[in-house]
């Protein structure tokens, strides 16, 4: 599974770090998020899926 955050769509809602704190980090500048990795470790897959689903901007792209 691969994950990426679309920078032009993310506005820093912060839901991803709630659902998958080990997969995403919010910037100290504007609160926008980045994925900590592109290839999702097996044990993070469920959390990453939930985070993508919970994003109000639908800014997280998951490729299974």
């Amino acid at each position: 599974m691969k994950v990426t955050v679309l920078r032009e769509r993310c506005v820093g809602q912060g839901m991803c770090v709630l659902y998958a704190p080990e997969a995403f980090v919010q910037s100290d500048e504007d609160g926008c998020a980045e994925a900590r990795f592109r290839d999702v470790p097996k044990e993070q897959e469920d959390a990453v899926r939930r985070a993508a689903d919970a994003c109000p901007e639908q800014a997280i792209i998951v490729v299974e």
Partner: peptide, 23 residues
């Protein structure tokens, strides 16, 4: 709730700037 895509802080560029303070 499995995932909660709520809009209490708005959506788009005007997303509530104080959301981290509120939380």
């Amino acid at each position: 709730r499995g995932s909660n895509r709520h809009l209490a802080f708005g959506s788009g560029i005007h997303r509530c700037i104080g959301s981290s303070f509120a939380r």
